[in-house]
Design a protein around this nucleic acid. Structure first.
Lengths: 326, 326
DNA sequence: TTGTACGCGTTATCAT
DNA sequence: ATGATAACGCGTACAA
């Protein structure tokens, strides 16, 4: 591995000059920076990021800790984050917490000991402990007890509109299939759903908590279908749960769009091609990633040193067939 | 940040003893290791991974460079890799090359300067330059010119079987919608497809190259549908292209399963719920990740120092409705 | 068994 | 403008 001393002797200067020349410090002769650059190229020199990190006390990588890499919503977020990180010369350490508080804690530790420049986190719960983090943090999608930069979406509003739509279509008993009861986004879905019911002067809310997964969706759907007050339509909390619910419906020979209405959060790529095409509450996933990335970059660069900023994005109701009553 | 010297003074020993105690070197008094451990806990000490990396000349992170994070196949691979990495105390630096040779090259550089312990790579093309990599490498899904550890799948066989199935169902003119002509996996799909045609004594192969994306699939499908010899069925190279093809069919009012037969590589979560349910050539994505991870761990640990090993996994044909002729 | 001291490759400070 | 050198935090060879 070629190091800075090699470049120094090749160019006939000191290591200090090499460092300055390569890092664009203005205090170096224009002729020398050429000599140094050439020498570096000739030798194929790349500054050792570890050594640099040790000296600078931080690295050029940011950590993105997401709750589930299998969820298209989060992969879209990741794309957004990655694009702005890349543009700013940062690499992304993508960590999959897998909806597991333990894994999440471990990754937070990794971020700490790896001295990343900043972290983006979609916390498992509001209680996630971030007290040890020395670097800028921006929270994504789910709130934290602590006051930090965040980018959220108006999911209560989204859930409310979706439920309203179900009611408008003439479905009699909408239910809500949502995530674990310690996840804020799961609670938001229920909240919006209840609000819509209340708007219609009803208080017969019917909902089920389950993991944010395909199996979770299937299980929650089964529970609702077996309950005394069987619902005739569903608001589902994310696309993976929706797939699970669909599986359960299919298993029971229930036909969506005839026997049952369905609308789900997240406009997954497959949504238009399902039978029947799935109505959704679309979240601006990619934009969320971009916003979060930009917020973090501002903190890292130090251009933003004020109070925590919070950006809140809106959802979009996309009505296809699955929620229609015909 | 609490460092090793703090622990040393807290425990009343030297830094060397702390280091040895915490790293489980046997040459340290059992009583002292207790004292040290307690002191470390009390202070909340975590060894600085950067400094450790500089000293050891490598870190406890492995890089996983995948071609497209939007592809469920690769996210499944990532899960497999992550599980074994985690089990072995490694973090995963997940990089999305986005089917872009430039991005891939940049990430390879990152792996180099970050001194990762090893890298897992699904190369953009066989020509990808890995000559600068000092650390173990295992290649996933797509071959490389250089001889290295690899885990592949028998995709030629998979494509052949799928095409055979199309023919068996009575479709007259199967075509192949595949990826870019510089991607080995794209070529494999065509190869298997041709072989099946040849088996049937035919040489009227019909295929289209396009990006491995939804748009690519739509575009390729359109091209085929507009060609003089219009095919009546398709073997599609991955699930994203399949979604694109589906969009194009829909746009033209073509009904899959009646006017057209379709089968695609990769058993995406949505495949059973499409209209009609999608027949697929399933690749063991998670297992691929696990195998690759294990191969890499062996190299890193130094338990394996022999010639490159290559594991080849099989696909599974899952027939649902989209490929049936009724 | 334990401690001292050096080196890993950079950047930054301080002279020059 | 440039060079010598200290420091970053850790692991380990060597000495005790």
């Amino acid at each position: 591995m070629v190091k800075i001393t090699d470049v120094a002797s090749e160019a006939g200067v000191s290591v200090a000059t090499v460092s300055r020349a390569l890092n664009g410090h203005s205090t170096v002769d224009i002729a020398l920076v050429d000599r140094v650059t050439e020498a570096a190229d000739r030798l194929g020199y790349r500054p050792n990021a570890i050594a640099r990190g040790l000296r600078r006390k931080k690295t050029d990588v940011v950590a993105l800790i997401i709750s589930d890499i299998g969820n298209p919503f989060y992969t879209a977020v990741a794309r957004g984050v990655e694009d702005v990180a890349q543009r700013n010369g940062f690499s992304v350490l993508l960590c999959n917490a897998d909806e597991d508080a333990g894994k999440e804690a471990r990754y937070l530790q990794v971020a700490e000991v790896e001295q990343v420049a900043g972290v983006l986190l979609s916390p498992h719960s509001a209680a996630t402990d971030i007290s040890r983090l020395q670097m800028p943090l921006v929270v994504i999608d789910r709130p934290l007890a602590a006051a930090v930069d965040s980018v959220m979406v108006r999911s209560i509003e989204g859930a409310r509109l979706a439920t309203q739509h179900l009611l408008d279509e003439g479905w009699r008993h909408p239910a809500c299939l949502t995530g674990p009861d310690d996840a804020a986004t799961a609670l938001d879905r229920v909240e919006g759903y209840r609000l819509a019911l209340a708007d219609a002067g009803r208080n017969d809310a019917l909902f089920a908590h389950a993991p944010f997964s395909q199996d979770g969706g299937a299980e929650a759907a089964a529970r609702m279908l077996d309950s005394a007050t069987r619902p005739d339509s569903f608001l589902v909390a994310n696309s993976q749960m929706a797939l699970g619910a669909l599986a359960e419906f299919k298993r029971r020979g229930i036909v969506v769009g005839r026997d049952l209405g369905v609308i789900t959060f997240d406009d997954a790529p497959w949504a238009p091609f399902i039978d029947p095409p799935m109505s959704v509450v679309a979240q601006p996933a990619y934009d969320i990633g971009v916003w979060a990335g930009n917020l973090l970059m501002d903190r890292i660069a130090g251009t933003e040193r004020g109070a925590p900023r919070s950006v809140i994005l809106s959802t979009e109701l996309i009505v296809r067939e699955s929620s229609r009553r015909r």
